[in-house]
Write a protein that binds this DNA or RNA. Structure first.
Length: 799
DNA sequence: AGCACGCCGACT
DNA sequence: GTCGGCGTGCTC
């Protein structure tokens, strides 16, 4: 008899990062299985947890019982349980953290404590009575931590007047709507309207069929009060039904879109992908195709075929290119057979989409990073589009890279992975060059059009000629030309390295965050200075806090300021600005793009978010206002990122019949990343950059691991770093290089000093275990995201 | 993480 | 003498 459940409880600390044994009462044992969430007693509390195993015996003398099963079917199947284990091991995090990140937020239920009244409230002391007011239950989190009150509560509980109840935190799950069903229709109702409504119900839906009231009202053109009367007089019965939220109501879901005719290059590539799918080869393939070469069409057709064979597919897309356009394309092709998962959806919407996958109502999942955990059981293909994108790496625990998870799942399912990009990451292209990945390429655009001409504008010369504007003469002239012809332009401004800080022109004082080693950013919208790391805010001072001069100036170029300048230079231009400010509201991103697509504006000005995915035929000019901003960041990937970005933005122009043109403004026109982007020469860039990486000892020649220590006391952080450095140096092989500890680039965040060690290595099988030991050793305070030690394997960011 | 247990300083 | 500070250690 299998009567004991091994449970990982929802306590993310070192001491509890292992299974705990619980007895499964008979009533539960029958329905319990691995991967289900449960409610269990743990110390004085009740917690949620995951059953990771069910066994017949336990070594413990006394065990507590599982209180409740929270699922009817497991939320984590066997594959995902194993994947979670692997994830925790590889990324050095807790099991529970790995599991939680694999399921939708709506299912990450926390047990909530509620204080509940058992006897007449008059019997209670006044302070406790005041706490309850008119209610019978009080949320424990709302109870103030007043010693006297807490003592009184405990007293009353001992006397049986109060008790603690555990409820699951109310999470938006299924969406329920009111619906009606015919109850009787022999005796005709009183009014004409009611007769009409009932007749409509009977004819359209018949007996026993539930119809949402909203829908009935619309279809039968009757008001709510008619329905209410019918319900009141027992003609109709009111019930609740569960429906899917449909976040993409605009998308047509006909699922009949014609397949595009493929070029011969595309046909070849598709054949290779199909071959690996049908032969169940867990081969990673790198699809290197220039912008506009029709990579998506290949994914679509490959998926078409595997769906017929009853298999399933995951398509990962970077968050910012998961635009309605992109989603619509999949919906048009596969109709209701697609689930879409991304962060703009509400918690409830995501849950619905996830449920579609789990219940096998769809065969395709399209989504951002976390969609790689889609609970399919018969995967035939995983696609990672724009595989070089840094957003595939999660920047919090578990710090996984979706590419590595995809490769793990591909080996589990014996299915191929396709990594697609116009500018593959150095790591991936190097693997393809070595034959670890199968290299596929699409060197030409589908429309046979050449890639757009790119003009480099040397901003130093502009400056020398007296042009102090953000816009070069040439770019401005081209913008005017497009305006005249009624064609559209996109302008790209990279905000990174461009934060608008405030400086006193008299004494040079710069507003800094009092808690972080970083300058404050000026937000024009509300006139506040804000810290981007800890959220600290203060009002913009009228006089310099240091010298009391009134000569305060904002430096840097925000999109707002560029917009203002552009509007002055081109008063007749209709401009749409897209940045964090204008797209914060739900659906705003969508709406702005739609307006631009409909020709309601001439110029689209934006940040990162416009670099990809937009595919409008009338765009004939793309401008990059400052190509160098990325180039000089203290990051070994700066050149790679610059090349990628320039190539992506250039790809926005001339995707249709009209030829496209690109202007890149730069202070470093001779830099190889910029030169080679101009000549559309990925391969030369790859070779040149590879040499640089080899020389400096960076990926793909070395793997990296970054260990950060953060503590209110600088010396404590440094001491920990030194200890870690010693341990690593004495335990790793000769090839490994351990750097540091050195103060982190941002030396203080939220009043905690930060220092870091960097490990560069080639082959260190023991490193994972060593890191785990360090992690456990330094496992101290964790408050929110503030941990003493943070280990980031294969880091993307070094701040 | 919580929560209890436990061992020292300042109050009814 | 007690209350209550928060260091330590455990939770099946």
């Amino acid at each position: 008899m299998l009567v004991y459940a091994k449970v990982i409880v929802d306590v993310p600390t070192g001491g509890t990062d292992r299974p705990f044994d619980y007895y499964l009462p008979e009533a539960l044992a029958e329905n319990a299985s691995k991967g289900m969430r449960v409610l269990v007693p743990f110390g004085q509390r009740k917690l949620t947890g995951f059953i990771v195993d069910i066994v017949s015996e336990t070594k413990l003398e006394k065990v507590k019982s599982v209180s409740e099963l929270l699922d009817l079917t497991p939320v984590l199947n066997n594959e995902l349980l194993r994947l979670g284990e692997w994830l925790a091991t590889e990324t050095i995090c807790f099991q529970i953290t790995a599991f939680q990140s694999m399921i939708p937020a709506a299912m990450r239920a926390k047990a909530m404590k509620k204080l509940s009244l058992l006897s007449k409230r008059e019997k209670l002391p006044m302070n406790v009575q005041a706490l309850f007011g008119q209610a019978d239950e009080v949320d424990w989190a709302q109870v103030p931590a007043d010693a006297r009150l807490l003592r009184d509560i405990r007293n009353e509980a001992e006397q049986g007047h109060l008790t603690m109840k555990y409820a699951l935190k109310d999470q938006a799950k299924h969406r329920k709507v009111k619906a009606v069903v015919i109850q009787r229709y022999e005796t005709p109702p009183a009014t004409e309207k009611q007769k009409q409504a009932l007749l409509f119900m009977a004819e359209q839906y018949g007996e026993g069929e539930l119809v949402a009231i909203q829908i009935l009202m619309k279809q039968a053109a009757i008001s709510r009060s008619v329905v209410n009367t019918l319900i009141k007089n027992d003609y109709l019965q009111e019930k609740e039904i569960v429906i899917d939220r449909n976040p993409y109501t605009d998308a047509e879901e006909d699922g009949n879109e014609e397949k595009a005719t493929l070029t011969s290059d595309q046909t070849d590539v598709l054949a290779k992908v199909k071959k690996n799918i049908t032969q169940s080869q867990a081969t990673p393939m790198l699809l290197h195709g220039v912008t506009g070469s029709g990579k998506t069409e290949i994914y679509l057709q490959a998926i078409d075929q595997l769906m017929e064979a009853g298999k399933e597919a995951i398509v990962l897309v970077p968050e910012i290119s998961l635009t309605p356009q992109m989603v619509e394309r999949f919906k048009k092709r596969f109709g209701a057979n697609v689930a879409v998962l991304h962060s703009a959806l509400s918690v409830g919407e995501r849950f619905d989409e996830w449920k579609k996958i789990q219940e096998k109502r769809v065969q395709v999942a399209v989504g951002a990073r976390s969609a790689v955990f889609a609970p399919f059981t018969n995967l035939g293909l995983i696609v990672i589009d724009e595989e070089h994108e840094s957003s595939y790496k999660q920047e919090e625990y578990p710090r996984y890279h979706a590419r590595e998870v995809a490769l793990w799942r591909s080996r589990y399912h014996d299915c191929p992975v396709v990594l697609g990009s116009a500018t593959p990451s150095m790591e991936s292209y190097a693997r393809a060059a070595k034959g670890v990945y199968e290299l596929l390429s699409l060197p030409e655009r589908v429309n046979q059009k050449p890639l757009p001409d790119i003009e480099l504008v040397d901003m130093r010369l502009e400056m020398r000629e007296g042009n102090r504007s953000v816009f070069s003469t040439s770019l401005l002239e081209k913008l005017r030309d497009r305006l005249k012809k009624g064609e559209q332009s996109v302008l790209f401004l990279n905000r990174r390295g461009f934060s608008t800080f405030v400086m006193c022109r008299n004494c040079g004082y710069v507003g800094m965050c009092p808690h972080c080693e970083i300058s404050l950013t000026y937000h024009q919208r509300d006139g506040q200075l804000k810290c981007h790391y800890c959220g600290h805010e203060e009002r913009l001072y009228e006089r310099c806090p240091s010298c009391e001069s009134a000569h305060i100036r904002y430096f840097g170029t925000g999109t707002q300021r560029v917009e203002e300048e552009l509007q002055q230079l081109l008063p007749e231009a209709r401009i749409i600005r897209m940045d964090n400010d204008t797209t914060r509201k739900k659906g705003a991103h969508e709406r702005l793009l739609k307006n631009f697509g409909a020709g309601e504006a001439d110029i689209l000005l934006g940040t990162q978010m416009i670099a990809k995915g937009l595919d409008f035929p009338n765009i004939t000019l793309a401008g990059i206002l400052a190509a160098d901003t990325l180039l000089h960041l203290p990051d070994f990937r700066a050149q790679e990122r610059t090349f990628q970005l320039l190539t992506q933005v250039s790809g926005r122009a001339g995707r249709d019949e009209k030829a496209g043109e690109v202007v890149i403004q730069t202070y470093n026109p001779e830099h190889y990343a910029i030169q080679l982007a101009q000549s559309h020469d990925y391969l030369s860039f790859f070779k040149k950059e590879l040499g640089q990486r080899k020389q400096a000892g960076y990926p793909p020649y070395y793997y990296l691991t970054l260990i950060t220590f953060a503590h209110p006391n600088y010396a404590t952080a440094m001491k920990a770093g030194e200890h870690a450095g010693r341990v690593l140096r004495s335990n790793l092989g000769e090839d490994a290089i351990v750097l540091g500890p050195t103060p982190s680039p941002i030396a203080r965040i939220k009043d905690r000093y930060r220092c870091q060690c960097m490990v560069k290595y080639k082959d260190e099988p023991a490193l994972t275990e060593l890191l785990r030991e360090l992690f456990t050793y330094f496992q101290k305070e964790i408050q929110q995201d503030q941990r003493f030690i943070t280990i980031d394997r294969h880091p993307n960011m070094f701040m």
